[in-house]
Structures are given as C-alpha cells and as structure tokens.
Nucleic acid binder design. Structure first.
Length: 428
RNA sequence: GGAGACGUGGCCGAGUGGUCGAAGGCACUCCCCUGCUAAGGGAGCAUUCUGUCAAAACCUGGAUCCAGGGUUCGAAUCCCUGCGUCUCCGCCA
C-alpha cells in the first residue's frame, strides 16, 4: 500500500510514476474521495468531541449530586446527527481503503520504463548452454523414460496441471529442495522455518495478494463459513510473521528460508505451458525472505538475488539475470530481478526465480515496524525471492544434464545426496 | 465435540458504568546522589488517525483495554456473537 500522505500531497507525482507501469490512477476519483473523507471525518470528530465533553459534565454533576437534566437534554440533541455522521464515515472509509488497496507500488528510479516483458533488461548471463550431439528430449520424455513422471495418473487423481513424480524423479525433486535449504541456511545465514500452507485473508492482504488477485488463489471454505487460502508462495506466511509487530532494531535483518508447496489457480493461463511441469497448480519452491532496516533494503536485494544465483551456479545451470521493467513488475514490487534458466528443449531461458524489494509496500499493509533511532515505530522494508522454484529446477536439471540414452548425470554438488552416485537411470 | 475459566500497555498486574489511555510493580531512557559492576532520589516511557502547517516539532480533537455488534448521555467495566488461550472430559494419534 502506498503512503496516504504521499497520495494527498504529491498526487500528480504518484500518478506519473504509476503511468510508467501502465497504470492509470484516477486522480479525480481520489480527490473526490479525499475531500469527502475530510469533510465527514472532521465533522464526525467534532461531534464526538462535543458528546464526550458533555458526557463528562454529566458525570461531574452527578458526582456532586446536582441536576444534570439540562446537559442531558443538550447531548440528546446531538445523538441523531452524530449517528448519521458516523454512519456516513463507516460507509465511506471502506470505499476509501478499497481504492488505495488496489494501487500498485511505485517503481524504484533505477527500474527501466517499459510496457511489458519486452522492455526487461538483461543484466548478465552466466554459463554457456551446452552443445548436444544428439536430439535433446524435453523433461516430460526424460522423466517418463526414467519411469518417474506421470501426468495422466495425476489427472486421474486430481486434475490437469498436477504431476505425479516417483522413483528417481521424486527423489531428485526432494534432494533439490534439501540442497537449497542447506545452502541458504548453512552458508547464507537464513533461518529455516516451517509454516502453515493455509492462511487467513489478513495474511493475503498483508503481502498484497488480496483484494486484487483473489482469482489467482485456491480458497477453502470452512464449516463456519470463514475462509482460508492455499498459499501461492511461502512469501505469504513467512513475511506475515512480522505482521503487526514492532521489532527491536538489533534483531534486523531477519532472514528466513522456507520450503513449501505453492498453489496457484493459473486463471487466465489456459493453453500456456500445458505440457510438462513448467506451469502447475501445485509446485514446490524454496523461498528467501528478508525483513530489513529501510536503509538496507537495496543492498539486501542484491544480496538476496545473489543467494538465488548461487543455487544456479552451484548446480552449473546456465542462466541470465533480468531487470524487470516498470510494466512487467508485480503489484507490490519496487524493483524485481528475474533469474531465467536455460532450457535446452525449449531453446530459451525460462523464469526460475523472482527477487523483489517491496520497500514499505507490504510493511504498511501489515503494519510491520521497528523502533528507529528516536525510539519511534517506523515501517520496515520487506524482500523476497525464489531460491529456487524446485519444480522448474528439476526440469532444468533433467534437460541440461540429459545423456543420449535418456539417463541423467547428477550435478556434482548433489552427488552426496545420492550416496556419491553420478547417474540417474531407470533402475532407481 | 462437551464443560468451565480467562483475554488490560514491552512484561506482571489493579480496575466492582462517570474527570481511565488506564493505579502499582518490573524492564527501559535521562538526571541527581554515591569512591568501588550495589543501593537511593527525581523525571520520562502505548499505538494510531485527524486538524493546523510547505514540512517537522508543538498544539487541538478522534479512536484503540482480543475482534465485531448492542445497551447507555457516558463502557476496560453490562449484554450478544466470533476468535484465541488455559483446564477437565470425550475422540483421534
């Protein structure tokens, strides 16, 4: 959420920055809401002040045993007007809040302007795509050959866009997650956390999924009618750890790593990436989250992105690092790097990690603060990034490490997890 | 699932409808005193919104004692609902 004061005081500037994202801020609508708010709120508060002071007088008079009927009559006359004014305010504020809640974050000044993904800027490439002297198979064929990837059975059990992994594929998938957790917790200084996979609407609001993106979520209706949502990313439960908290500055930065399944309805993506594991309703991801001092978030973004890159580098997977342009960034992000891994079967780079600094955008929604040098509560900055998407990493390993006979060489850093083995084949 | 108890500031804890945003204690900050890592004295110490202001500070006012409703001129205090915690029983591990 944006700072209300910024909207009030620098509306043209906000509108201009949002326009770079392709978002049109209805400034006239905001000004109308703000004018109405100011009128109704000040009127309501004046009436409340009057009511409070008269009621206090009643108490004083009665305490002295004197007659309070004159004051009571006066305050009685206020009742209707006050109730009406409070009702007006109660009607207006949700509209006001709803307006502000769907305004995206302002892009950082270092973010290039652009309409869509074609405006993204390649920052660097790492590694060289391998030359194959045989026809490459895609991960679906490779996984099937290994006897461990079965989408038909997954459909029988559940629905399309789910996968059934077994044997060596399931094991490789599990090992990848464990490798990432080990790396981030032992070498990069993150605290591993285990979190609920179902979260309440407040948490979804806090990180920005609600109210605007409900259609992307799976939701669960409980017997009492209340709602829980399946997490679309561990970012939601992990970042919400600090919701409503005022942290002591010395605990910063908080760094969490968390492995969870992620559930996305993928509404609106019909027909895209229908083959294979690239786009699933459920996928595993190891997420990095940092809660930092506001002056430290930009260096933290570089650091966090580097931690995600380290996974790719250690797995020796070629990738490129993209700086997203204004038009391609997510709702709450001020700046985002995407990491894209090379997929031989698609002959292209595909997103495998997205690392963002949200500055105060999520913290304001969550009221996540720390005590600053003046001992006053001040909003934190939040960041998160995939480190990495496990399903897509599995795809990348299968495709990049495939051999002519359909077996898969095991990346060096993973071999300890396989008892030193160097090759995965059907026998697993 | 059944029965009961409870939800107050960073923590503990008082508060039985009226000047309570809230006694007292602990912790913390500042000052004084003190020659010895102790003790004593004084002061301060919730959050948030709003008005004024270019802005900040100050100041004005509103709101907040789990949440949401209700009763009342007035609610931390009474009533209802929900959520949470604890204890006992049942159930399942």
């Amino acid at each position: 959420m944006l700072d209300i004061q910024l909207l009030r005081n620098q509306l043209p500037f906000v509108a201009e920055r949002l326009a770079t994202r392709g978002v049109t801020l209805d400034t006239a609508a905001f000004e109308a809401l703000e004018a109405e708010r100011k009128l109704i709120q000040t009127r309501t508060q004046d009436l409340q002040a009057r009511r409070n002071s008269l009621s206090k007088q009643v108490g004083i008079l009665k305490g002295k045993g004197e007659d309070a009927s004159a004051v009571l009559a006066e305050v009685a006359g206020l009742g209707g007007e006050l109730a009406a004014s409070e009702a007006d305010l109660a009607e207006l504020m949700p509209r006001f809040d709803a307006f502000v809640a769907v305004i995206p974050n302002l892009p950082h000044e270092s973010v290039p302007s652009g309409k869509d993904e074609t405006g993204n800027v390649e920052v660097m490439r790492w590694g060289t795509p391998r030359e194959f002297d045989f026809d490459v198979k895609d991960h679906v064929d490779l996984g099937s050959n290994l006897g461990g990837l079965d989408f038909e059975t997954a459909v029988k059990i559940s629905a399309s866009r789910f996968a059934l992994m077994s044997g060596n594929v399931a094991r490789l998938h599990r090992v990848l997650a464990q490798f990432m957790l080990d790396l981030h917790s032992k070498r990069h200084g993150y605290c591993e956390v285990g979190v609920p996979y179902l979260v309440n609407p407040d948490s979804m609001f806090g990180t920005g999924q609600l109210p605007k993106f409900e259609e992307d979520l799976f939701r669960v209706v409980r017997s009492d009618g209340s709602l829980l949502y399946l997490i679309p990313t561990a970012e939601v439960p992990v970042t919400n750890i600090v919701r409503g908290e005022i942290l002591a500055p010395e605990v910063l930065p908080l760094k969490f790593v968390c492995h969870t399944p992620c559930f996305r309805s993928e509404a609106g993506s019909y027909g895209r990436d229908t083959r294979g594991m690239i786009r699933q309703h459920q996928f595993d991801k190891v997420e990095l989250v940092q809660i930092v001092h506001p002056e430290k978030s930009w260096e933290a973004l570089e650091q966090l992105t580097g931690h995600a890159e380290a996974v790719l580098q250690m797995l020796e997977l070629p990738y490129r690092k993209m700086l997203l342009c204004t038009g391609d960034m997510g709702f709450g992000a001020a700046k985002t790097y995407d990491l894209e891994v090379w997929l031989p079967a698609q002959n292209t780079y595909r997103e495998i990690s997205s690392c963002s600094n949200y500055e105060t955008f999520q913290a304001r929604r969550m009221q996540a603060r720390y005590r600053n040098e003046k001992n006053k509560p001040e909003l934190l900055h939040t960041l998160n990034g995939s480190g990495l998407a496990v399903g897509r990493t599995l795809v990348a390993i299968l495709e990049n490490y495939q051999n002519a006979d359909g077996s898969i060489s095991i990346p060096t850093v993973l071999r300890p997890y396989f008892g030193g083995a160097e090759l995965l084949d059907k026998t697993g």
